[in-house]
Design a protein around this nucleic acid. Structure first.
Length: 264
DNA sequence: GGAGTTGTTTAGGA
DNA sequence: TTCCTAAACAACTC
């Protein structure tokens, strides 16, 4: 599920563990989720460590402890949640941080997620020099225009999915942004007018902000006036003009758009 | 049983 | 060299 707003929602699920010590760590280190982490180091770093803070950047999460940092990427099906310590472990709970009376759980059936570890004080290398997040002031019009011209032959849909340019945007947000911008998903990135690139930039910021407001808060759905709730319905219609929505694979992903509102 | 899934990485072609 | 595409990863649901 997770795109930037869902990631923000899941980040907060570990908030009950803030300022609490980790008494033990349960994990299956041989899973690909933990690739690159030396055996035993999760426990060595996190056991006895206190959870200090957390933040998201695009689809990435960082949890800071007094002895190191834990990075979490949810992949396609990852989730974070907290539950009572005596709870039966969920089937795909691959990492559990035990605290007094509480477990902080990472589960991921499809194993596309990724856990990273950094030992010691300060933020890890992989948390520095990240591309501007669409929520931040640094996500400027020139940043978007630069991406459009650097990847001029890439379809807009595929460009929006590139995390080095649009961190946090995933499949449904990309479709939503293009639909609200009235731009065809297959249009080449290098062909936008000045006005169109400005629209794309503003809409990216707006959709990100609104998604955080509803989904990031309590996982409720965006309004029916968005493409969001219509895009997977069989025979779904455009909530703006009533025309039946198109669906095809663009940029390697299933894409939904309105042929009337987003002419080629 | 087959098709499809809101993500990322990698190999290889252009 | 750089850009772009398709496949691989893997488990669940419809």
């Amino acid at each position: 599920m997770p795109e930037l707003a869902e990631v923000e929602y899941y980040r907060k699920q570990w908030d009950p563990g803030l300022n609490q010590k980790v008494s033990g760590v349960t994990c299956r280190e041989n899973l690909r989720i933990f690739r690159g982490i030396p055996p035993g180091s999760l426990t060595a770093t996190l056991q006895g460590a206190r959870l200090l803070s957390s933040e998201t950047h695009g689809k990435q999460m960082l949890f800071r402890f007094d002895k190191g940092c834990l990075g979490v990427h949810l992949g396609m099906t990852g989730e974070l949640f907290a539950e009572k310590a005596d709870h039966a472990p969920a089937k795909h709970a691959h990492l559990i941080l035990h605290q007094k009376g509480r477990d902080l759980v990472f589960s991921d059936p499809r194993l596309f997620g990724r856990i990273r570890l950094h030992s010691g004080k300060g933020d890890p290398e992989w948390w520095k020099d990240l591309p501007p997040d669409p929520r931040s002031k640094d996500f400027t019009l020139p940043i978007v225009q630069q991406a459009l011209s650097r990847r001029k032959n890439t379809p807009l849909k595929a460009l929006l999915l590139q995390q080095e340019h649009f961190p946090g945007i995933g499949n449904w947000m990309a479709d939503e942004i293009l639909w609200q911008s009235r731009l065809h998903p297959a249009q080449k990135s290098g062909t936008l007018t000045e006005d169109e690139s400005r629209t794309l930039w503003k809409t990216t910021r707006e959709v990100s902000k609104q998604a955080l407001r509803v989904i990031g808060k309590d996982f409720s759905d965006p309004p029916d006036s968005w493409l969001f709730s219509h895009r997977w319905k069989k025979g779904g219609i455009c909530p703006r003009c009533g025309v039946e929505l198109e669906r095809a694979e663009i940029g390697g992903r299933t894409t939904c758009w309105c042929a009337h509102c987003q002419p080629k």
